Simulated scan of single mutants.
Amino acid sequence: MSLPGSDQVTDSDLTHLNKSGAAAMVDVSAKQATHRLARAGALLQTTPHVIRLIEQALLKKGDVLATARIAGIMAAKKTSELIPLCHSLMLSKVSVDFQLLPELGQIQIETCCVLSGQTGVEMEALTAASVAALTIYDMCKAADKAMTISNIRLLEKTGGKSGHYCYPPKGDL
């Protein structure tokens, strides 16, 4: 096993491979159900003009943030259909929030997924952030084709054997 923060990955770190090296779904049936939470983020870079259009609901496709919020929630619920080997989970909560930074032309997206279960919800939170960002892009592309989506990342996770993680990890600053 590699040390946390190390760049070296060993076979024992790759939980979705069986002993033969083939892709396999992890068996979580023997694990205790615990309260688990994951927060993820993404950054959409556009122009101050597009942020004003969103704030004033002037885009032809409708309420951008409400649509992106619903898309993110739906995506979290469908993660196991999108990401091979993910378990389907009974999510207790999914939230998708936005912070508009008009002067920078940015939208910060933060998602949170919660459940009581045998496996984590990191992929659901990351999928929600990604799809919310893609939805904003889709709804605003007529106004700015040069938008970028970046910094999709896990912000925090709690629960399970590996415990609490918070971005950035200590020593990465």
Score class of each variant (00 low, 15 high):
S116D: 13
N151S: 08
I136D: 00
A146N: 15
I149A: 04
A142P: 07
I149N: 12
Q108Y: 14
T119E: 11
T127F: 03
S150K: 12
E124R: 00
A129S: 14
I109L: 13
T119Q: 09
D138M: 02
L126C: 02
S150H: 11
V114L: 14
M139K: 08
K145R: 15
V114Q: 15
E110I: 12
C113R: 12
A125N: 04
Q118I: 11
A128V: 03
E124T: 05
I109C: 04
C140D: 07
S116Y: 10
L134W: 10
V131W: 00
A133G: 06
V131A: 00
E124G: 06
E124V: 03
A129R: 13
N151V: 04
I149E: 08
K141H: 02
K145T: 05
E122Q: 09
L126K: 04
E122V: 05
A132N: 01
A128F: 01
T148C: 10
K145Y: 03
S116Q: 11
T135I: 00
L134C: 14
M123R: 02
Q108P: 07
E110K: 15
A143I: 05
Y137T: 03
G117N: 06
M123Q: 07
S150V: 04
A133H: 06
L134K: 14
T119W: 13
A133I: 05
C140K: 05
